[in-house]
Design a protein around this nucleic acid. Structure first.
Lengths: 327, 327
DNA sequence: GTGAAAGCGCTAACAT
DNA sequence: ATGTTAGCGCTTTCAC
């Protein structure tokens, strides 16, 4: 910076002003500085700036794995929204969803140059005594049960599961079987609870829940078991991958979809419309969730306020060809 | 840090030594400092450290979108490998794969606190005159044609396409039709070239190429066209999603897979084994690619050497149930 | 094994 | 509109 100042014949302070787009600089001077910057290939040093301002213009993101559709889409939206606000994203991956791993990530995070944190995981992971979020660092949590202590943004899991279940019931099915996500996932639990609740409201006793692990393989296994039972005519899988596995199992068993069994998924992945048959599923607006996350976080960062609260993004049912009235 | 020094009754310099794990500190002193750090909740300020050392311990990643399986898996591996080396990842998303957008990302990147860059995209995007990578910043590129100017790590696209094509030929198919990825993707082009070359070596004239856009929907459209032609008995899709679309089209058309038509994909996504029928596909080791990327980059960063070169990771064919001998 | 001094590149506050 | 001064929190150098 001193070099630039020297070349442009001004003080380094003026260079700083130009660099930060302040308006109180003479146009001619500004041009001269800009030219000097260009010639010297000047790039501001963000470390020095951060040291001075105490702000890093970066947001830390903690997540288990990128390998689920929802996490990936949420991350994508978060990255885009941050970029628009001129914040960068610092990724802190967590190898395993164990509390020890999370504790490690949080401690690594606290040494990072960040202004706020987005956590994409169950908040109950954060309840352990040995996990302390760095004080004074705004936090927003996605996919979580954290009621009032943190700011939470999430899709309306309960409404989505209700939509799926009622759709199947409206089609005349006597009951709806459910292949759930892992018990450790709060969104999976909410979907399951809502499915049970919906059946209950229709005076139907919920069948036993089958627990999968989000993978198509687990959907296939449970699909094989369910498909073997003639009374099963409607299956609600807690995500599209497991629904794909169910579809495969049903095909193998020779049970026609949707003529003999109806199947509904959750997420509305890109591929769901190309399954065979195209899958009826619940659409989650991950982009909106990511956007709201960043909006809430930036608000906290820039106003240093601390209003926790939960924001819920609605879901909607996308009806395709994997569901039909009972025959 | 001064607070800690005061509390422990040492100089701030000693605190720094403890903080950096230097060995030349008396055990008793170290314990005292550690205790003081703990009580005061001391966290080193990475900006100040970076300002001094000129190192940020962070790697910038430029990518178009997280929404393809390969990019996501590669990013996951990169994040994990970096974390192991105690580097964090700074994401620079690029909204659109246009050169203007890339130029913007690169310029944003140059102001970031990073020690090196991983670019997951076609290198020819970087050839535009108005895109200048910050000098002195090590760069590694994935999925690219950048021969000698940059360090490149990628899966062996050509070998994968050859494996797929020869598998089909070995099964007795007279020819192999190909649904390619977009022409703007270098890996797509390499797969197409290799498919054509393989047919050529078997003295078969390559049929006209159908270009998709990686989406299942585009695979479906081309699958519909191909399935209507009885002479088409073997289809090689350039990724698993397009293969999924092909499968759907073939089902709709009433052409049995694999009895009437064999289908091969590329990538070996988690779900491919749960397609109906389970998909024969080419497995890419994205994790290995990500790992090697970071290894190469860290080498350049830490030795300040600048040896460019290309590292190729082999692929392998996973035979499942979507391929069979011609009947 | 430990401390004192200097300075990394930048910006906030004040002066002109 | 521009310059001067001071200092952010840390590490490097050189003493002791």
């Amino acid at each position: 910076m001193a070099d630039v100042a020297g070349r442009a014949g001004v003080s380094s302070q003026t260079v700083s002003r130009v660099s930060n787009g302040m308006t109180n600089v003479d146009v001619a001077t500004r041009d001269r500085v800009l030219a000097a910057m260009d010639e010297l290939g000047y790039r501001p040093n963000s470390a020095a700036r951060a040291l001075k301002t105490g702000r890093f213009r970066s947001i830390g993101v903690i997540m288990f794995t990128l390998s689920t559709f929802g996490n990936m889409r949420t991350l994508d939206a978060i990255a885009t929204a941050s970029a628009e606000a001129d914040y960068s994203i610092t990724l802190i991956p967590v190898a395993l969803p164990t509390q020890g791993e999370v504790a490690g990530a949080v401690s690594r995070l606290s040494e990072q140059a960040i202004d706020g944190i987005v956590i994409i995981m169950e908040a109950h992971m954060l309840d352990r005594a040995d996990i302390t979020l760095p004080e004074g660092l705004p936090v927003v949590i996605v996919d979580s049960d954290a009621g009032s202590r943190y700011t939470v943004v999430d899709a309306d899991q309960a409404q989505g599961a209700r939509l799926a279940t009622e759709h199947l019931l409206d089609l005349g099915h006597r009951s709806v079987w459910h292949i759930a996500g892992p018990k450790s996932s709060f969104s999976a639990v909410r979907r399951t609870d809502s499915w049970r609740q919906t059946l209950h409201e229709h005076r139907i006793e919920a069948p036993e829940v089958l627990y999968g692990d989000w993978s198509a393989e687990s959907g296939y296994r449970h699909g094989l078991a369910l498909g073997a039972r003639p009374e099963v005519t409607a299956i609600f899988a807690a995500n599209d991958q497991m629904a794909l596995g169910v579809l495969r199992a049903l095909h193998e068993l020779g049970r026609a979809v949707p003529e003999s069994v109806s199947v509904v998924g959750f997420d509305d992945t890109e591929e769901a419309s190309s399954f065979w048959p195209p899958l009826t599923t619940v659409h989650q607006d991950f982009s909106e969730v990511g956007r709201l996350c960043i909006a809430a976080l930036l608000h906290e960062i820039e106003t240093t306020s601390h209003e926790t609260g939960t924001t819920i993004v609605p879901t909607r049912l996308v009806v395709r060809e994997s569901t039909a009235p009972v025959s």
